[in-house]
Each structure stands twice: as C-alpha cells, then as structure tokens.
Amino acid sequence: MGQEPITITTPLTEELVASLRAGDRVRITGTIYVARDAAHKRFIAALDRGEALPFDIRGQIIYYMGPSPARPGRPIGSAGPTTSYRMDAYAPRLLALGLKGMLGKGERSAEVREAIQRHGAVYFAAVGGAAALIAQSIREAEVIAYDDLGAEAVRRLRVEGLPAIVANDSHGGDAYQSERARYRKG
C-alpha cells in the first residue's frame, strides 16, 4: 500500500500484464465481462461443440460475479466477487484462448496459477462483500448471453475505477501465499 493505485484500462495488453506485480493495488476502467459457475459450464460445452463463445475473450477480463437485481434507474444491484476456485476447472482452457484477466476472490488452484504464468495473464482479487461499494464503480450493465440464467447470465459492464488487488501475476507472484506467510505466527 502506500503508493497510489495503478489505473488500468481494458482490453489488457501484454505489456500492461507483464508490468503488474502481486500485491499491486489497481483501479480497473473500461469494458469487462461477467460470468460465473453456470455460464462457465456453458462456455466449455460450446467450445466442445466447436462453437464460438458469446464474446471475443482475447485480451479481456472476466469478473466472477452474480449481481443482485438492479433497482429502477440503476445499471445494476450489488456486485461483489464470488469465490474463484469454482471456476478453476474451466479457467485454463479460457486462458489458452487468450483471456488475459480474471477478477474474483480467493486462492486459485496450482493448475490455474501455472496457466496464468504460461499464458501471460493476471488474476485480480476484488474485495468480497464490498458489493455495494463496488456497484458504485459500475456505469453500465447489459446481459449479452444466457439470459435464462438470471443472476448467472453473461453480462458486459462498463466500469470506472473498480478497486482490486493483483493476486497472481504473470511472473508467478502470489499475493495470497506471500502475504499470508508474512503474518503467520507460530
């Protein structure tokens, strides 16, 4: 902490991803995509059938999130991250296809951490449970696929200054592991 957060804009370039280090505080601005458990299952089923995904994931960030309903006149309801490990089974395949960023909460599996490094990607941690606060940084939201999934539908968001922390960087850095070790006693 101490330093000002790094402002990053989407889509993510290789240079930008390479410059990020575990523990960096960031503010994300631009377009990001929302998908969680059920949508990921459909993504993989679509790929298995040889079909395209509902959006071009290259260079993009997927936010693991299922919002509460929007009140009239608001783009979205509360919108904090869900736990990322449940997407671990799907993430390496999407990273191989060019996905550059994931935004969620909690530690990733060894397979995902390895894939992040191999494909030059980044995993951001948003603050779980700060859902009303995070909603303030979401300017627009639109369901773009799997409407029938309700809260689990795929959404496109326009965000401005969404706060997050680099949890896993493209160089093998892992803020969860290193920070936890720092404060572990006995």
Partner: peptide, 12 residues
Amino acid sequence: RLGIGPLGLGGT
C-alpha cells in the same frame, strides 16, 4: 495467528 487476514490477503 494463521495470517489469513481480511479476504485472505494477509493479516491478523
């Protein structure tokens, strides 16, 4: 004393 901290990002 586990070091997990707020949101698991380290702390007391």
